[in-house]
């Protein structure tokens, strides 16, 4: 099982920088190219949420660390996104009403819903200091 870890700071790195790193690690470990957009969708929603909202209440410094830890055997990819922002469990966000007509749909909730759909398993933990969002994605 190969292990990768990188610490980012949202003051210096954009969500796209973090997404590029994660996709790079997956690609390096033979993640199927045809599933890259599916991977990107799940990862992007998770990373953008952390970058945009984890530190938003820490005014005036609304940035902070985001650590990415990945373990993989080339078949299963365990990705952990750790931040030290406000405790937030995205799994408690209710799913959007998929059956509502488009013009009556709520704008919120879609991102979290797509993370759930695009990953094989997802879990959340807060240890009093950090949020840990753990995504399992099968190649």
């Amino acid at each position: 099982m190969k292990e990768y870890s990188r610490l980012f700071d949202t003051a210096e790195s954009s969500a796209e920088d973090i997404i590029t790193y994660i996709i790079g690690v997956f690609s390096e470990n033979s993640f199927p190219a045809e599933k890259t957009n599916q991977l990107r969708l799940g990862i992007e929603e998770a990373v953008v949420n952390v970058c945009n909202y984890a530190y938003i209440h820490n005014f005036p410094v609304t940035t902070g660390p985001v650590e990415i830890n990945i373990k993989t055997d080339g078949k299963v990819f365990y990705t952990e996104i750790r931040d030290e922002g406000i405790p937030y469990n995205p799994l408690k966000t209710p799913n959007p009403d998929l059956w509502a007509p488009a013009e009556e749909k709520e704008i919120g909730g879609l991102g979290i819903y797509l993370i759930k759909q695009m990953t094989d398993d997802i879990s959340y933990e807060n240890d009093g200091k950090s949020n840990y969002l753990r995504l399992t994605i099968m190649a």
């Binding site: 957009n37 704008i107 879609l110």
Partner: peptide
């Protein structure tokens, strides 16, 4: 080649703005 949920939100905005019959 790829859409994120942000694009879906733009679609919902447009559906609300003009109605689904016109979109």
């Amino acid at each position: 080649d790829y859409i994120a949920s942000s694009f879906l939100r733009l679609c919902i905005f447009t559906a609300k703005a003009v109605g689904t019959e016109r979109f």
